[in-house]
Each structure stands twice: as C-alpha cells, then as structure tokens.
Design a protein around this nucleic acid. Structure first.
Lengths: 208, 208, 208, 208
DNA sequence: GATGAATGAGGTTTCATTCAT
DNA sequence: GATGAATGAAACCTCATTCAT
C-alpha cells in the first residue's frame, strides 16, 4: 500500500520534512495531554514553533496532522522492529529476544502509542486503512519469526495459532502502555517481559 | 468506590432513571458511529426522544452523558460476568467456561465496548478513576477464578502470574472487538474462543 | 419554478418569517454600503438585532442571506408591478402608465435593485436560475401589456420587437438606479419618465 | 481627468508595462470565472506567469489589479469606438454604423465588460470616479454623433433627449452582454443590432 | 417538568501582504 | 528584479449551555 500524500503548499521538500517533524513532535505532546479533539490548530502551530498560517502551508486540514502523527509513530515502531527481526535466526531464543525488544520499544514510545490508539478512530475513512495496514505488517513480522520456530521444530503450532499468537504478542506490547495505570504499578518492565514471555512460550514447547 | 452522582434537576427518581436509560441508548448508537466529540448534545437529545432543554434537566454537562454511558456499559458487562463467576467451583473446566462466557459477552457488546475504549479518555479527571476501578474489579473476578484453580492444585502459578493472566484474558476479550478488522475476518467467535483458551490454559497445566 | 427552501433550525414559522425580515432589512443596508463580500456575518447579525448564533438558526450559509435578500427584492418589485398590470386594459395609455409606475418603483427601491444587480452573480449555481426566472417573468408582464396594444391595433410590432421592447423598458427602469451618478444628476424622475416614454412609444405608433 | 498612478517598485517602465499586460490578461480570465473577491492574489500571479512576490513589485494592493483591469477594458473599448467615431460625417447612416460597430465591440468583449460591470463597485472611492469618467466620455461620443444628425436636420431632438438617447445606446450595448442569458438565446447579434437600431432611430425621424 | 430559541466563545481555515534570500 | 515562506488578522460557522415561557 502506497503512502498517502499530504498536500503542502511549500515546494522545498527538505523544508517540508523539517517543518513536519517539528509539527509532529509538538502535536504528539499535545494529543497525549488533551487528545486530538481538544487540541486546537493554533496550539499545534505554537507547539511546533510557528504561526497558524505557516502550519497551513504544510497541511490542508487538522486531520492531516493526526494522519502525519500516526504515520510517523507507526514508521518509527516498525523500523525499529524490522531491524531486530532482520537479525532473526528462527530459534526460540530469537523469538524471546524479539518479544523483549518489542516490549521495550512499546515502553519507550508508550505516549505515542497511547495517542495513536485513542485517536486513530478520528482518521478519515480515507486514511484509516493505510494506518491499519501498517499494523497488519507488524503482526506479520511476528508471524514470520514464530513460523521459523515452527519450521525448526522448536514449536508445534497450526497456521491459525501462529497468527493469533502474533496478535497476542502485539496487543500485549500495547497493553503495557494503555493499561499502564494497572500494569506499571504492579510490574517493572523487566518483570512484565519475563512473565509474559514465559506465559506465551512456556505453553508452546513441543516436548512439554 | 462509591458511585459518582450526576446531578439532575428533576426530583422524581423513577423518571430520572427512565430518561437516562433512553439517553444512554441513543448516545451509545451515536458515539459508535461518530465518536463522543463529533456527536452534539442536540443529537443525543433527539436520539433519546426529547428536547435539548429536557436533556439538560437530567445532566449538567455533555461529559455527564459520556460518564453515564461508560458507567452503564461497565455495569452491564460486570453484572453478566458476575453471574457466571458466582457459579464457579474453581476447576479448570470452570475457568474455560468463564473465559468462553466473557468472550461471548464481549462479542455481544462489542460496539459498546469499542465506544468505551475509544472515548473513556475524554472523561474528566474526576470520573476516570471511577470507571477504571470497575475494570480493576472485573480483572479481579478472573483472578479469583484462576486462584481457585491454583488452590485446587490444577494450576501452578505465582501471584504475579495470576494477575497477569487475568489481565491477558480481559484484554483478549476486548481485542475481539477493537481488532475486529483483523480478527473477525480470520476467525469465527468459536474458533477464537477455542484457540485463545488453548493457548492460555494449555501452557499452564501442572502435569504438562 | 418553485421556491428554493432555505433551511431554518427554528420551527415556529411565524418567528422564522419575522427574523428573516429583520435580517433582510439589515443585510440590504449593509450590502448597499459595502457589498456582499465585504459584509461579515457578524455585521449582518448585529444589523438584524440578534447574535451571530441566532443568525445561523435561520440560515445555513452566508450565501443564504444573499439569496433571501434577492428573493425578497424581486418579490417586492414583482408584486407591485403585478398589481398595476392587473388593471391594464391594453391601451397605449395603459402602457404609458405601466412604464411610469415601474420607473417609480425602481426609484423607490433603487438601493435594493442596485444591490441585487451587483451581487446576484455571487449566488450559487443553484440559486441563480431561480432569481433569473423572476426577471423573465417580469419582462413577460411588459410583453403582455405591449401585446395588448398590438392586438388593439394601437401599435404595430413583430413578436421579436415586442420582446425586445419589453427588455428595453425593464433595463431602462434599472438604469435609473444603477446609472444614478449620471442620470439623476441630469434629470428629475418625472423628466426621465416622460422622455424615455416618449422615445419608446413615440416611434411605435401605427399612424406615425 | 488624469490617469490614476499605480505604484510599482520596479523602475524599468517597459518591464512594468509588459508585466502588467500579463497580469491583466490573467486577471480578466479569473475575474470572469470567479469574480474579483473569490480570486486570490496567488491565482492572479500564477495566471500571469510569475510569483506572488513579483506581483507585488508591480502593484501595491489587490485592488490595484482590479483598477488596472477596469482601466484596460475601458481604454480598449473607448479606443475602438473613437476610431469609428472619428470617421463620422454626421448622417443618420453614420449613426447606424456607429451603433452597429459599438454593439459588435460589446459582443467581442462581453466577458470583459461583464467583469467590469459586476466588479467596478469594489473599486475604492478613490478609483471609481476615474473609471466612471471614462464612461461619461464614451456616452459623450454618442452625443456628438447624434448632435450632428440634429444639426443636419436629420433628427429633431432636444438637448435632454440627445443625452438620454446616448445613454440608451450605451446601455443597450452592455445589455447584450449582461443579459446574455435572455437575449443571446433569442436573437443573433445581427438581429439584435437591426431591431434595436430600428426601434431607436425609427421613432426619431423628423418626417415620421 | 418540558420546550426550543437565543447566546457567544471559540474552532478551523483563508489569504493579502511582507521581507529575507 | 524575482522568489516564495512566513505571518496573523479576520472570516465563516458550530454547538454546549441557559432561561423565559
């Protein structure tokens, strides 16, 4: 799926890229605190460090900001995850590390992920599928890693189980952020990683 | 935690209760379609079947509607779950049934749950803890059921593991609704229940 | 052609009618001074004697105001003209009186007519035909009066000539308003009526 | 009345003249389609083939563009008319030809004339008299031609009648453009010229 | 207790104009 | 002389809330 273009009046692509980075940074902070709807475009402009007029040189509507924010967050998460997965050798040990790494990323970016989670529904019907697609791609990464373990004979899982385990891992990563009010009070990140990994993988070994 | 009172000008309590039921029903449908912020108070009044003036006889602010909606949904889910859990005898078989029942409830009420999930953040700092508390109580129900199994010797889990498994069950129930775009395309509810239960419990048996 | 409906949120039709009258009155004055585009909706509301919020209870867009203004002016002119024409007996003398009466109306309403003339182009593609239709109907009134004279044998004109004379009368009425900077400096209304009538009819007599 | 100066930062007069020609050409097209107020300065610059910055090297305000456009159109019309009138010998036949020629010019330039007609009111109090003056001068040309006929004894008209006939001719020329929705559906330009001329002059002959 | 007309703060977006490069 | 990014005043319109009836 190709990237959705957000129209900018400004021609200089480097400038566009720079300004948008400023914008996204400011917007994430605001959305985190007040949500998308309660944040005004003026606030976004101010947080980004430029005027309201300038903001609209780089987007067409307020919703464009939300899209850019979501797009950015997904790309960031996906890129980080991709790097880890690329080194994968298909062993259980690798799966453990991938999960740990993913949970770590979700911890680092929990504010961003929370924002995305709560505001993605405000995306237009146009933009939503593009964002959901990114999530599907990430889930697929986990599927690939798990499949390797199955092919190696280290795990015995049906196709359907593989897919669902991948979803579970993904959601458990997000949980750490969006249920922080419960989980981060009770567990350290390390504990959370350890216990979830054990619960997930403990039950999957072939020889058990 | 005691129930948060929403002020009504009208004294007749039965009337208040009736009007609020109408209101919640209408509001859920609207929130489902357009979200809390994009729904106007006029629309809520209309969907409830009375005038905007009347609406404000039963609430003080728009946010009160959201609170009442969230409150109602949680109560509904919790009540249903409570009934099931009350019959529980503390066996693995009972745990399976509880999970199946919970997932079924989450399927029945997926629109409502989705609404709550996406809009709860718009609750005031005042109302949010009360709603989160309800969630904690529900997670505790699962903890109780699992604990029984541990006490029976059918499962071997630490305190920390019990709590996290309870969270996992809860979130997997919600997942079915808020990731419907992926899950409900790939699995029937029955399959989802079966596979998730197996993945959850399969790894927890003492004798495996 | 049926009347184009302008949506009002308010139900009470009498109230709607009253408020719109206030609105039109205020708007005409403003449009006269500054034109449609330079007049703000707030100014219209203020001139009408209510708040901006109230204004929008009676219209949907600013353009609706323009439409209502144009509609009102045309109706006013047309109604007045209709009354005169209804008494018509089809003689040259009647034609003279009709022209005089029309020019008098155009003098009374010259501000309104000027507004309509200059701003009608800002009407949406949707509303314009409806307004133009009213003009066609007025031109037809003149055609009827002239035709009677032809049928009576008092004038000898082809169909095409009748139509064009009707247009000329109509435009000469408007001229008095929109070229006031030249004409009203040089002629009194009475002189204008006399001379134009003579020029128009003088050349049309059968026996001349 | 002397020409109103529009300030240009650029000194090279030839360049100024060239750029302004480009500008006027582009602006006329835009004003024709969308009107003065709905046309942005950026669009004008683009249509003229240079940047918004450059546009403002040749004008001081947006209204200057309108003035230049109006000025240009009037000059064009007036120049063409002047050439014809200069050959005039003061006969009825010459008057006929002048009218025919003028109507032809108004047909050629009907878009431009329409623009001017609808937008002239947006000129500042400063610029308007200058433009109106041009119109007065054109009307005077017709007065001169008609006066010649009167002096020749071919027509018998008072001073006041001469002036009004001149106005009528002028407005009937414009009519062809601004009432095109009615007239150009019913008449060819030739028919329009013939009938209007006959109606105008038919009634003026001395011997009739 | 019910109604709905009235309010106006505040939201998003546009666009004429400037000025550093 | 030419460019186009930046600016911010000001436009249109919405909608939560009130209050007289």
């Amino acid at each position: 799926m190709e990237k959705r273009e957000v129209h900018a009046s400004v021609k200089d692509e480097q400038l566009v890229s720079m300004r948008r980075t400023q914008m996204i940074k400011g917007a994430v902070t605001l959305f985190k605190d007040k949500g998308f709807h309660r944040t005004t475009t003026r606030e976004i402009a101010k947080a980004a460090g430029f005027s309201i007029g300038t903001l609209y040189e780089y987007i067409r509507t307020k919703e464009d900001v939300l899209y850019l924010v979501c797009d950015f967050i997904y790309d960031e998460v996906k890129d980080r995850l991709q790097k880890e997965v690329n080194q994968n050798r298909g062993t259980i040990e690798n799966l453990r590390l991938t999960i740990a790494y993913f949970f770590q990323v979700m911890d680092d970016m929990q504010d961003e992920v929370l924002v995305m989670y709560q505001e993605a529904k405000s995306l237009s019907k146009d933009a939503l599928p593009y964002v959901l697609n990114k999530e599907i791609e990430m889930v697929k990464m986990f599927e690939v890693v798990i499949s390797h373990c199955v092919e190696n004979g280290e795990l015995r899982l049906s196709e359907e189980e593989i897919s669902l385990v991948a979803h579970n891992i993904f959601v458990q990563g997000q949980m750490w952020g969006f249920r922080r009010w419960a989980l981060q009070r009770a567990y350290t990140l390390e504990d959370y990683i350890d216990i979830q990994t054990e619960l997930l993988i403990g039950g999957l070994y072939v020889h058990k």
